[in-house]
């Protein structure tokens, strides 16, 4: 979905250029995370105190593995977008700001892929 106005499309300029996309994907991931986080938190509560075999068996279920990866993708994307706004609002020195934005992007990508790889390694 594009929330851009007609004038914006004609001028191909805007205050933040891709602000609507950022805003929209933040809401998209938020809506996805409503059912996903209920499922995830409930599962973790039920797994509390489990041994390695039981947790491995849980992740090995294909439906669980897919839903875990969906949760991780939505979560880390939502986290990346949220932290980006916090960095942009509070850090004004340009070199520090750019460094933090890079770290935010790289860090969340590394974490998300590490988590997804771990799920696949256990499940496949």
């Amino acid at each position: 979905m594009s929330g851009r106005t007609s004038l914006r499309r004609v001028r191909d300029l805007g205050t933040a250029r891709d602000g609507v996309h950022h805003w929209w994907v933040q809401r998209l991931t938020a809506v996805a995370l409503v059912p996903l986080s209920i499922w995830f938190v409930t599962s973790i509560i039920l797994l509390a105190g489990s041994d390695h075999a039981r947790v491995t068996a849980w992740i090995s279920n294909p439906i669980v593995a897919v839903f875990l990866m969906l949760t991780l993708i939505a979560m880390f994307y939502h986290l990346k977008l949220g932290l980006q706004v916090v960095i942009e609002d509070y850090i004004h020195a340009k070199p520090t700001k750019v460094a933090c934005l890079l770290l935010n992007n790289f860090g969340n990508t590394v974490l998300a892929l590490s988590c997804i790889f771990s799920v696949l390694k256990v499940a496949v």
């Binding site: 041994d51 390695h52 075999a53 947790v55 491995t56 992740i59 979560m75 880390f76 986290l79 949220g82 932290l83 916090v86 974490l111 590490s114 988590c115 790889f117 771990s118 799920v119 390694k121 256990v122």
Partner: peptide
């Protein structure tokens, strides 16, 4: 939200430990 960002580090560590085997887990 920022605090949950820190928590995601622990979630990542926990998931990696499952993949790493029974002892790290």
């Amino acid at each position: 939200g920022a605090g949950l960002g820190l928590g995601s580090l622990v979630l990542a560590y926990w998931l990696i430990s499952v993949a790493a085997g029974p002892e790290p887990f």
